[in-house]
Design a protein around this nucleic acid. Structure first.
Length: 204
DNA sequence: TTGGTAGTCACATTTACATCA
DNA sequence: ACTGATGTAAATGTGACTACC
């Protein structure tokens, strides 16, 4: 199997959310512990960059508008930051995870999950590329097989001196004098080793 | 050496959201 | 404007593996 380009590991993540320039901290209000019911994908009104982030604590989720938990989308900046980190290391040691979580204001578990999913997406992308590659190779082999069959069909009616054998690939003919009349049965065609192996066009 | 525990991983699946016809 | 289908990403569940005690 040929080595695939390493670019397969680099995926573009497109997060369809509005742009934000900072990561606001958790928005449980002081004292009361009441979570403001904001749509995390909505730009806060009044131009103030404030939103509930994905770093919401578990107990907070249960208070979120009566829903057990809301699906939380990462901001562009969070995704970008994680993506850049992923380019450097596809796995995280606990210290890195903690640090990264602090930087993007997520829980370490969320960072861990993001990396797991990201690795899965990478692998999926690579598998798709391999699949495409094999399809193209299969097509190439099919075409080659078709050509060879056609060629064999054309060669069938041609009479060759019975004592001569010819490599079907390079057309080289053996020396007839090496064959004894009435001796042991002729050996298989002396195909040349280099002719037995071919490289499909797709691999060149 | 063996057994228990914690942490992490891959993998499959579920869930919530966004988009589009 | 509404709706259902679909795609995507975040989250969850599970089993395997390893390190440590």
């Amino acid at each position: 199997m040929a080595v695939l380009p390493t670019s397969a590991l680099c995926l573009d993540l497109t997060i369809s959310i509005s742009s934000f320039t900072s990561y606001p901290s958790l928005t449980s209000s002081d004292g009361g512990g009441v979570i403001r019911d904001l749509d995390i994908n909505q730009v806060p009104s009044g131009g103030e960059e404030e939103r509930i982030t994905a770093g919401m604590e578990d107990e907070d989720k249960t208070k979120n508008c009566g829903h057990p938990h809301k699906k939380l989308r990462l901001t562009k900046e969070q995704s970008h930051f994680l993506e850049e980190s992923f380019k450097q290391n596809q796995t995280l040691i606990p210290k890195q995870k903690e640090a990264l979580a602090m930087q993007v204001k997520l829980k370490p578990r969320q960072v861990e999950v993001w990396f797991q999913n990201r690795r899965a997406r990478s692998k999926l992308k690579q598998t798709e590329m391999e699949c495409e590659y094999l399809k193209r190779w299969f097509g190439s082999l099919t075409e080659q097989n078709r050509r060879l069959q056609k060629e064999a069909e054309e060669l069938r009616p041609i009479k060759v001196r019975p004592t001569m054998t010819m490599c079907p690939c390079c057309k080289r003919v053996t020396n007839p004098t090496t064959l004894n009349e009435g001796g042991p049965p002729p050996k298989p065609p002396p195909w040349h080793l280099k002719c037995l192996y071919f490289t499909p066009d797709i691999l060149r």
